[in-house]
Amino acid sequence: MLAADQPALRVLVLDNAPPMSFRDEFGHLTGFSVEIARAVCSEMRVNCTFDVTTQSAMLPAMSQGKADIAAVGLLETPERRARMLFAKPYYRSMSLWLARPGVAPGRAGVRVAVVDGSVQEAYGRKQGWEMHVVATHGELAEPLLSGKAQAVLAPMITAINLQKTEAFRQLGLATTVIQAPELSGDAAFGISPFRPELQKEINAALDRIKRNGTYDRINSRFLPFRVS
């Protein structure tokens, strides 16, 4: 157990990736990942301070030890594994291709909107796609609405949020689940490579909140179905 008088853990979060991490109407950070991180901190009986970052800035910050925990749903990739540690997964994700019916992935002339530093961006780059890269998940709708991009490759939960706006629904995009191993699977928090001792504590805290109902309440609050 970490003592209560230890310095607060520095937790990195995104602030424009609803419903995973965002600011509510009062400007407070919240969302599925943020609340899970809060619950884990409270289970570990440590204070946590939240620092806002972006998907692309997150990995360098972690590898340099500028933060202890990255409270972002991260799929494990070799690149990430080389630069930080992973906690136990806290949900299972997949990536969705949203485009007009008939617009298949990889077709010439199709520009795909992706978030900078995401696995979707890495996948598109590997496939040699034309891409429109944005900094945050919250900015993914705009390129499609303005015609700068014809498709979006986004994590499942981000896609749910995109579908919520009337303007986006008007585009009449079809949804396809991309069955690629690097685009789906277990999503977990990142842990600083300088704090390996945190891994055990965080995993135990995750186990406890999954058992005591805290996890399911947070799930119901932010997401339409169980994502574990």
Binding site: M94, A159, R169
Partner: peptide, 19 residues
Amino acid sequence: HASRQQSMFVVTLIASHPS
């Protein structure tokens, strides 16, 4: 139709979810 599409979207997600 929009509401149906949104529900259908969730149905797709659930049916494809690893769980």
